[in-house]
Simulated scan of single mutants.
Amino acid sequence: MLEIKDLTVRYGPFLAVDHLAMSVGKGEIVGVVGPNGAGKSSIVKAIGGLVEPKSGRLTFDGSELQSVPTHRRIKLGISIVPEGRGLFPRMSVEENLVIAGDALGNGKRVQHNIERCYTLFPILKERRWQAAGTLSGGQQQMVAVSMGLMPDPRLLILDEPSLGLAPIVIGEIGRALTTLGAEGLTVALFEQNAKLTCSVAERIYILASGAVRHHDRAEDLLKNPEILDHLM
């Protein structure tokens, strides 16, 4: 579904992504693991059209993405849950979800997707009229993931969804991603948390200094944790 070849991203003299290649197949959950500064967010921004790569080719379902503006990428079915969540803090949980689903242009579908999110994260239904900015960090992350689901994406990309969260909340996020994968949603998870990533993903790319250092099935990495320890 998503193919990245020879991707290079620079910020002035700083090389953030170095001739990277990776793919995400339809219906897969693929993890991209690396420490802070490994280039994960730069890859996400390149996929979303928020940075212009120095070189490389990005395709989605066989179509080139480079010339497609960000808003059109959303319409193609690419939805990004950014690091930092990107909520409207003064608006209620439900108002955030309605705004995120606005591109659907179908009130019944928006409501259906809201209920789906409440099924995935029941606490959000209890807090549906609470201002998003007053929620706990974990609940805010649940809202962010839900907002990413509202446009009916074909590919959901998450950038550091576990950052700063308590282990119990990370577990809830992991269970939600496993459920989405079982439903057939294609997911790309960019994370520092190798344990979370290996628990939900089928394949793992390990990044260091903007390049892929190792690529394997998650189940094989779990059998050889020293690889993660060495490369992370």
Rank of each mutant, 00 (worst) to 15 (best):
G34D: 13
I173F: 13
G12L: 01
R73Y: 12
V17I: 03
S41D: 05
G84Q: 05
G49R: 04
F121V: 13
H230L: 07
D102I: 12
M232F: 13
G148Y: 01
D6H: 13
A208D: 15
S55T: 06
E28S: 07
R213Q: 15
V93K: 14
L158T: 03
S92V: 12
Y205L: 08
M232D: 00
G174T: 01
G138Y: 11
G105Y: 11
W129M: 04
H230T: 04
E219C: 13
T8P: 11
L76H: 03
N193K: 00
E202T: 02
G39W: 02
I168A: 12
E191N: 04
I157T: 02
A176V: 09
R10Q: 12
N36Y: 09
Q139C: 02
L180K: 05
L177P: 12
L7W: 13
P153S: 04
G133I: 03
S41C: 04
L222I: 12
V68W: 07
A46H: 10
L76R: 14
L65T: 06
I43Q: 01
L177S: 08
L158H: 04
T178G: 07
D6K: 14
Q130W: 00
L207F: 04
A166E: 11
T59S: 14
A211H: 12
R85H: 04
T178C: 03
L15W: 00
Q141C: 05
T134G: 04
V169L: 15
L2S: 11
